[in-house]
Design a protein around this nucleic acid. Sequence first.
DNA 1: ACTCTACATGAGAATAATTCTCATGTGCAA
DNA 2: TTGCACATGAGAATTATTCTCATGTAGAGT
Lengths: 141, 141
Amino acid sequence: MESEELRNVGLKVTTPRLKILSLLENAKAKHMTAETIYRQLSEGGEVIGLATVYRALAQFEAAGLITRHQFEGGQTVFELERGPHHDHIVCARCGRVEEFYDKVIEDRQREIAEKLGFTLSDHALTLYGECSNGTCTAKNG
Amino acid sequence: MESEELRNVGLKVTTPRLKILSLLENAKAKHMTAETIYRQLSEGGEVIGLATVYRALAQFEAAGLITRHQFEGGQTVFELERGPHHDHIVCARCGRVEEFYDKVIEDRQREIAEKLGFTLSDHALTLYGECSNGTCTAKNG
DNA sequence: ACTCTACATGAGAATAATTCTCATGTGCAA
DNA sequence: TTGCACATGAGAATTATTCTCATGTAGAGT
Ligand SMILES: [Zn+2]
Ligand SMILES: [Zn+2]
Ligand SMILES: [Zn+2]
Ligand SMILES: [Zn+2]
């Protein structure tokens, strides 16, 4: 249950936090902006402040429940941290986001950091391109 | 000469543009924010608007003269596009930025994009970590 | 060199995303 | 239950960036 998750990371179980977590869990889009989360909850009849959404997301991130991504051009998006780590590829035309995990790249990153005298703690990798004409849902061909 | 560079990409040769290019060329820091460029030029006695700096940087980027990076937490930084492509590793404590190029990672990215049905056009890779105690110049231990 | 025009500029207003402030509300340990 | 540390909503404030607009100027054509 979501209450568990909150308790486990030392956060009080409150209605706004539960609503946000469960929206992230159930929404059609896996990667959502703060604004979108706010809007969808508001439309669903919740009374919630945008500041509360931002606050909760920051806390969830600090607690490791969610991750934050900054795709170029776009707003910051958040996604539930479930399953193994992955990186992203974004279609520059239609905005579609696909996920991937590549062990070779992950390992190489660690080696590179080491070679340069760094202790690796995190990384951000995003590929940009255009998805095939068949799948691309761009507004204007 | 910098005038050449501007002409080559179809931009008029103007004083602000020359000053910005030459600052990027000569400044101690290789990765600079728009604000820093603006401040350093102003301190050097130039009369230049911040909007002009942003405009010029956007044009330089579109023309391929510079690249833009968004390191997490920090402001957008720009750097002259000289020499081969590289990615970055940033120290979370002192902010030091090192550059690296790794053929294995670059090749893998292309393969991954292909496998997912994308035509790769760009990518952003930044590693985060802490540099060794010897080199780290963090404010507070 | 002179002129004309499209493009560039500086200053400040405007926007967008995010964070802060503060008066009020509430989870939960005791 | 009660108390209080923490959470919340609303709106103000901040930050980074872009826009507006009146004026200036690079450089093509004379
Ligand atoms: Zn990864
Ligand atoms: Zn993802
Ligand atoms: Zn690269
Ligand atoms: Zn660099």
